[in-house]
Design a protein around this nucleic acid. Structure first.
Lengths: 127, 127
DNA sequence: CGACTCACTTTCATTTTGAAAGTTACTTAA
DNA sequence: TTAAGTAACTTTCAAAATGAAAGTGAGTCG
């Protein structure tokens, strides 16, 4: 968490949330950690959208600062790291689901079912 | 809508949604149109977070392009404009609500009730 | 030794942001 | 009949963020 150093721009919950998650990449990192078993730097980098390495690095740091994920060396020689959602991070699942549903209904993207771990493909008649 | 010109970077519904809404301002504009009766350029500008005029102008254009809002001259001499959510734009309410709930629970922001039009203030013990 | 992998960091050109001032159309007060 | 004011933008420009690519360091493998 980041209680002391940070000053929010407003008291609005949406504005506050956007200070942490309001960009084109952060929620995709959380999506991959939440649902797609991608817990390593390289795996996160290689997702469909191809986040640049420097941005991934920055975003992971920010998410750690806010206590939404944690980093763990799960192997020595060679040292390998794993990122995982904290309980606070996991609590974002309803947000991801809601955004996904909207994108599926209005932009024709896929629909992932976290229970089965499978996705339905796009509604083909939209952008 | 913007079906023809635009190519999405991936088939993921979340990634697609973030191409339209993934920044620090767009959802705040939608919040103000959705719940706070701010339908004029000036009113939107004067919200707590103070979006710069050039960004507000750009965001309003983008939201129009995607068919989420529409612009209407509701008065001549002097000409005055009003922005309003389309039905597609209204369909983002569950997304806004979910983000708001998360921000309230985890970042201590306010909690607005769209039914009563009133907000509960921040949980005072968090950032 | 040389090649390869992972997990980054650095570099740098391009793009976006944000603060401020400027513009246009029109109204109202002096 | 200017003068000031308001709304809705647009323009300007410096600073910050983004993104493509190359570089780094620790370690392994053949």
């Amino acid at each position: 968490m980041r209680p002391d150093t940070h000053t929010f721009r407003s008291r609005c919950s949406i504005a506050r949330t956007l200070e942490i998650l309001g960009d084109k990449w952060t929620l995709l990192v959380l999506r991959d950690l939440m649902w797609h078993g991608k817990d390593r730097f390289k795996a996160l980098q290689e997702s469909e959208e191809h986040i640049p390495a420097n941005l991934l690095s920055e975003r992971l740091k920010r998410l750690q600062d806010w206590g939404l994920i944690e980093k763990e060396a799960y192997q020595e020689r060679p040292t390998r790291y794993r990122y995982r959602l904290t309980e606070e991070g996991r609590s974002l699942e309803p947000v991801l689901l809601q955004i996904m549903r909207w994108g599926h209904a209005h932009l024709g993207g896929g629909l992932f079912d976290p229970v089965s771990g499978r996705s339905q493909q796009a509604t083909p008649d939209k952008a």
